[in-house]
Nucleic acid binder design. Structure first.
Length: 721
DNA sequence: TTGAAGTAGATTTTT
DNA sequence: TCTACTTCAA
């Protein structure tokens, strides 16, 4: 044993210790925010192994994110000398993928099956609709996607779909056709990974019993986020002699729109004979006042398991509440405060700016920018989601599986080879009569002769690629070959803005090198799965000194010294779509609870009297969630002053305190925000926003005559007035 | 094949 | 009001 037992349990509080050493069957651990949940989970695994209760191969731990899975692995390996790499620790999707690769044929899949992400799924559904001659007016592709995923998350195939209105008939029909199309093309979407796995075990009792006997302990992280399909998955995998160790927090359930059901926690109690729920309530993250506020807020929800966070630490400062006059004012307040905190020695990377919806980031970014504060917005495109990367990988996919029409369509005319919509239509017809894939149809079609060498070269290139893969050529070299023959590099070299894309393509080769080293093999299929399943972190680059900006959803699981929550108005947060029913409102409240509990030391809650939304000025009321936090915990920064009492005439106090003054924003460069400028063609205007550095960036200018324009500084002839 | 022009849709999104 | 996407003309 790598670590003696005493050391393993050392430093755990009594509740954590009880959870770790639980010995009475399945357990449900109610783990509050910042209560050391991951530590308990990993120590539990280590304890099971150290006591000889389980051998490593008898454990299976499942999480929702790759990050969480990695964190568990890292902690485990720091705890001792177990063969961590051989452990079954991963995301639901990652583990399902593993099972399905092992038993592809039994699951009714081609061994070359490819995983598609949400975007590719949407594209696939649009193709289905086209094939069925469905009007995008009548059936909305997004709605169809929700229909499909919603059903899959409930474990329902198209044939069993719930069709309550006649308007849903077409949706079911499309779902049915989509299933067939995926089967034909050898693609599997995210929900399908789970569903196939469940069906695999249902249809193959021998397999199911094998795994049931093998995995003695199943550990589940973030249990409150499981959907019915995942619940069933777990139920099937858990054998008569196995136990489940489920860790979750009903108060942090914020993904019901993705099919998650908190009720699963109640079902769990019932189905797994849980007699006592263990609670981790001691919080190691936040100061007392912050916890008090969070506790008070969440108490307004009904039907909770119930828990109260507490800390041995100090109470800390009061929560600062600021009411802006406008959203711009709110943003300037935050930017000013950030500056102050930084000047007092605070680190920007210890601060986060949270909001309910991405649309809010704009105004906030503008304010930060004009004070020259570096910021980092989370939630943009991730590495493997970039267009050029998708293209490159599509070539790879096509080489692996000629049936993959989605991949074919992505690359047949990119870079352009003169294959227009017309030729594609003909191809499609040809493929249909031949009952073959588009790629195969291309081989025999007249198009190959007519449209000339481009297509010939394309066909040959894919064949050669397939040959390289067949020979076992190493992955980076295969990708290099893709880049060369496809013409992607050449294409982006012609493109004015292609430099970044070329850099990313080179990065792809680097990623392949890294992957090959980590995995110890350069299997193309594994790499493609990796690309879809692990879309690449888009978190702040480590070491970058910038304030982070993200939605509250994205902040779950993270913590920061200082947290700003902006836009606390009814209609925004809680969001208006959720105001109707209690369930929705309660989820919004949990979301607010998540937001508050991200803070270690300082918490700022802000809102605005008016804000511009969808181009219209909206007058908001302060969020009910603010009212639910005891006033005694708050320091209201701007006690309401009646306009008539002001000596500034019509100006409100807030706009006096936080002006977007030129002196502050001038630092932003030659064209600072608020700067009046002239353009040869557009006339006079005012700079409203700016992106990028120096001459590389672009500015948004509101021209008196022609309105708003974004102008690249490198090209636009702008003169300051 | 590109660009302009028009139009729907605008919460959150671990995989 | 903005943007992302489709449609239409050249």
């Amino acid at each position: 044993m790598a670590i003696p037992m005493e050391n393993l349990l050392e430093g755990l509080n009594p509740q954590q210790r009880e959870a770790v050493t639980w010995n009475q069957g399945s357990a449900l651990i109610l783990a509050g925010a910042g209560s050391g949940k991951t530590r308990v989970l990993t120590t539990r695994m280590a304890w099971l192994m150290a006591t000889g209760k389980n051998r490593p191969e008898e454990l299976l731990a499942v999480t929702f994110t790759n990050k969480a899975a990695r964190e568990m692995m890292t902690r485990l390996s720091s705890m001792g000398g177990w063969p961590v790499r051989s452990l079954w620790v991963g995301t639901f999707h990652g583990l399902c993928h593993r099972f399905l690769r092992l038993h592809a044929l039994d699951a009714g899949l081609t061994p070359q099956f490819q995983i598609i992400d949400g975007q590719e799924q949407l594209a696939a559904l649009k193709r289905v609709m086209k094939a069925l001659n469905f009007d995008e007016e009548r059936v909305n592709p997004r709605q169809l996607q929700n229909f499909v995923n919603g059903h899959k998350e409930q474990g329902l195939r198209a044939e069993n779909a719930v069709v309550s209105h006649s308007a849903q008939r077409p949706l079911q029909e499309a779902y049915l056709a989509y299933e067939a199309q995926c089967q034909r093309e050898g693609t599997v979407d995210f929900a399908e990974l789970l569903l196939r796995c469940v069906e695999l075990w249902q249809h193959h009792p021998v397999l199911r019993e094998h795994y049931q006997a093998r995995f003695k302990t199943l550990l589940v992280d973030e249990f409150q986020d499981t959907n019915p399909l995942q619940y069933r998955w777990l139920r099937l995998l858990c054998g008569p002699a196995s136990t489940v160790f489920a860790v979750g927090d009903d108060d942090q359930s914020i993904y019901s729109f993705r099919g998650a059901e908190i009720e699963n926690m109640r079902h769990f109690e019932r189905d797994y004979g849980v007699t006592r729920v263990l609670r981790l309530e001691q919080n190691y993250r936040s100061l007392g006042t912050i916890l008090e506020a969070a506790n008070a807020l969440i108490q307004h929800n009904a039907g909770r398991f119930g828990k109260t966070l507490w800390t041995e630490g100090a109470r800390g400062e009061l929560i600062r509440v600021y009411e802006g006059e406008t959203d711009g004012d709110e943003a300037r307040f935050i930017a000013h405060t950030v500056t102050e905190l930084r000047d007092q020695g605070g680190r920007l990377s210890d601060m986060v700016l949270l909001y309910r919806s991405n649309a809010q980031s704009r105004a906030l970014e503008q304010a930060l920018f004009s004070l020259n504060l570096p910021y980092r917005v989370h939630g943009g495109l991730r590495f493997f989601e970039r267009q050029e990367i998708r293209h490159a990988l599509a070539y790879l996919r096509l080489a692996v599986s000629a049936e993959d029409d989605a991949a074919f369509l992505r690359v047949i005319n990119f870079p352009p080879r003169g294959i227009g919509a017309r030729s594609l239509e003909n191809l499609q017809i040809e493929a249909q009569t031949l009952r073959s894939s588009l790629f195969q149809a291309t081989r025999v079609s007249s198009l190959a002769g007519k449209a000339g060498q481009g297509v010939q070269r394309f066909l040959q290139g894919i064949d050669q690629l397939a040959e390289l893969i067949h020979q076992g050529q190493d992955l980076p070299r295969v990708i290099q070959a893709v880049l060369e023959f496809s013409g992607l590099l050449e294409h982006y070299r012609q493109d004015k803005e292609g430099a970044d894309r070329i850099a990313n393509l080179e990065e792809l080769v680097a990623a392949a090198v890294a992957f090959t080293q980590e995995e110890g093999s350069g299997d193309v299929l594994s790499f493609l799965a990796h690309a879809t399943l692990e879309t690449g972190e888009h978190g702040a680059a480590p070491g970058s000194e910038a304030i982070q900006m993200m939605t509250v959803h994205a902040a779950k699981g993270l913590e920061f010294e200082v947290v700003f929550v902006a836009g606390l108005e009814d209609g925004l947060f809680p969001h208006e779509n959720a105001l109707q029913e209690t369930r929705g409102l309660e989820e919004e409240r949990r979301l607010a609870y998540v937001a508050l509990t991200r803070a270690r030391r300082q918490l700022y809650l802000t809102h605005a009297q008016s804000r511009v939304l969808h181009g219209q000025v909206r007058y908001g009321v302060r969020s009910r969630f603010l009212e639910e936090i005891p006033e005694s915990l708050c320091h209201i920064l701007n006690p309401r002053v009646k306009r008539s009492e002001l000596s500034f005439g019509t100006r409100a106090p807030t706009s006096v305190r936080f002006p977007a003054s030129p002196t502050e924003s001038a630092k932003a460069g030659r064209f600072h925000i608020g700067q009046r400028v002239r353009h040869d063609k557009f006339g006079e205007g005012v700079v409203l926003a700016r992106e990028g550095q120096g001459n590389e960036g672009r500015v948004q200018v509101n021209f008196r005559d022609v309105g708003m324009k974004w102008l690249a500084l490198a090209f636009a002839r702008l003169t300051s007035l």
